[in-house]
Design a protein around this nucleic acid. Structure first.
Lengths: 123, 123
DNA sequence: ATTATTGTATTAAGCACTTAATACAATAAT
DNA sequence: ATTATTGTATTAAGTGCTTAATACAATAAT
């Protein structure tokens, strides 16, 4: 899963989201060590300061912690990771439904269109 | 439907999206006249230059046209409006499914969670 | 003890976005 | 004819984001 950074939003915000995703989806499991700030920055083709900013926010949220000079780690509290995952899912669904309703679609239409897409993908 | 502007993305981009939504959902029907740049800007609590920028983009896309000093109008081509509506819906669904899969949810899970939300809302 | 690696902080520069304050041109309304 | 309203353009200033180039402190590795 490569880093996907668009130019229409602050990079640090996108980094926060994508690191959150990697934690929630198990790419970085609870308790595991993250690559160093410099390595992560190189990986994402981003300035270390920008990566540092994203990591600091995640640490502030409690999803990461720092062991002074040995590196950064994902929290060992897998309950917290699970909660974050569900929170993000709820946000995604809420935003999605909000926008589709604004576009003028009914609940049933939305579900049917999604089913159609999912069937197409499976074939 | 009030203007909802967050600070995490360029305002002009958000204006483009929200005007598109108003056109696609019938708030501004095909052929109808839009409020003036200055009025729209006041309505959205935004600088006229910023609103102008958003409108220029929509005009460039063909969704609006300008009649020099009598104002701006939505295209009379309701086919085009319909196409834009469907394009936006497809984008929303694609992005939504992408993020949910990144979070680690399966297709069936996604549909079930959405159904749950929709049932809760109806009650 | 020395070295390398870790996170962290600072400063300066460039860039895009936004606002404010104007101004101009065209034309609808009077 | 005059006035008001329309879209449009320009300039200057402020802000936040990003990068680059450093530097420092702490500690794991040697």
């Amino acid at each position: 899963m490569p880093w996907e950074l668009k130019t229409d939003r602050p990079i640090y915000a996108q980094l926060i989201e994508q690191i959150e995703l990697k934690i929630c989806s198990g790419v970085y499991p609870p308790g595991s060590k993250l690559p160093s700030v410099r390595d992560l920055a190189r990986e994402a083709s981003v300035n270390p300061n920008t990566m540092q900013r994203a990591l600091a926010k995640l640490e502030d949220d409690g999803l990461l912690y720092t062991s002074r000079t040995s590196g950064r780690f994902v929290t060992e509290d897998d309950n917290m990771v699970c909660q974050v995952k569900n929170k993000l899912a709820q946000e995604q669904m809420r935003d999605f439904l909000e926008k589709m309703k604004r576009l003028g679609f009914e609940n049933k239409e939305i579900l049917n269109m999604l089913k159609t897409i999912l069937e197409e993908v499976e074939q």
